[in-house]
Simulated scan of single mutants.
Amino acid sequence: MADGARGRLSGRSCIVTGAAQGIGRAIGEALLEEGGDVCFADINAEMAEDVARANKERSARSGGKVAWAKVDVTKRDQVQAMIDKAVDAFGKLDVKFNNAGINKPLNFLDVTEDNWRTIMEVNGLGVLIGMQEAAKQMISQGGGGKIINTASIASRQGFDNVAPYCASKWAVVSLTQSGARDLAKHNITVTGFGPGVVATEMWRQLDKDLMEIGVSEREGQAIEEFSADILRGRVATPSDITGTTTFLASRESDYMTGQIVMIDGGMTLV
């Protein structure tokens, strides 16, 4: 961004969870490019700090500020501390991305209670807590805000080897709709986006996990098979996602709420 230019996120304070790598990091960097103040939050404190440090030059160029925080999104006190840290650094909270998520594939009949609880706690409860605490901060400021949740193609249909993950992402859709209805009176919008197959660390690990449980026989097979029906003809990169996420964080999406925008190259047509 040229000196003196104002981006679409100038003057807006943002938090992105799960921001140490993959989609989360790309979301945060795109917000910085548009002049936003961004707190990169992750359960891995060292990686979050490294990402924030790596983005100092980008933030200086765009006019935004950068911070980082360690957070386990299933722990309310840690979520509150993360928000307090961002508010201390930036003065307020305008945009909260609930992006942190996990997956651990198991064949349907092999899903255990521990597998279910772990995935649902992070992907479901973590989103609920993140929405609640962000909304409380935004309400206390009196200026509204935006909450944006990461859903998935798995929020539109069930897959046999990742049933708890699918259930957790369907929960994200429901929480987005419920939050949108409740928080409208406070001028807080709640939206989400649904990525498909994205070339990130999470998908590379998923590919390995599916080999371990016998779903695929060779490295790359699972991604190839999942990607076969993408109308755009290729897997996504994180930069394919950030045009939409920046739009959802910007004032250009102020009339949107309760909606999930699919960014999957045409995998799910619903």
Rank of each mutant, 00 (worst) to 15 (best):
I83N: 01
I83V: 14
V87S: 04
V87R: 10
V87W: 00
V87I: 13
A89W: 02
G91N: 06
D94F: 02
F97V: 05
F97T: 07
N98Y: 04
G101R: 04
G101E: 06
I102G: 07
K104D: 15
K104Y: 13
L106A: 14
N107V: 09
N107K: 15
L109Y: 07
V111H: 03
T112M: 03
D114E: 15
N115M: 02
N115T: 13
N115K: 01
W116E: 01
R117V: 13
T118E: 14
E121K: 09
E121I: 01
N123L: 02
L125T: 14
G126T: 00
V127D: 02
L128V: 06
I129P: 03
G130A: 08
G130F: 02
A134V: 04
Q137R: 14
Q137E: 12
M138K: 05
S140K: 14
Q141G: 14
G142H: 05
G142Q: 07
G143M: 05
G143R: 14
G143P: 00
G144N: 07
I147P: 12
I147H: 08
I148K: 10
T150I: 11
S152Q: 12
S152D: 07
S152I: 08
A154N: 13
A154L: 10
Q157V: 12
G158D: 06
D160N: 15
D160H: 09
V162S: 14
A163T: 15
P164H: 04
P164Q: 03
A167H: 01
S168C: 09
K169S: 10
V173T: 12
L175M: 15
G179I: 06
G179P: 07
L183G: 02
K185G: 11
H186D: 12
H186C: 04
H186A: 12
N187Q: 13
N187C: 10
T191N: 15
T191K: 11
F193T: 10
G194V: 00
G194R: 06
G196V: 08
G196D: 06
V197N: 11
A199I: 01
T200E: 05
T200D: 00
T200N: 06
T200Y: 03
M202I: 13
M202Y: 05
M202K: 09
R204I: 08
R204F: 11
L206G: 15
K208A: 13
K208E: 14
K208W: 06
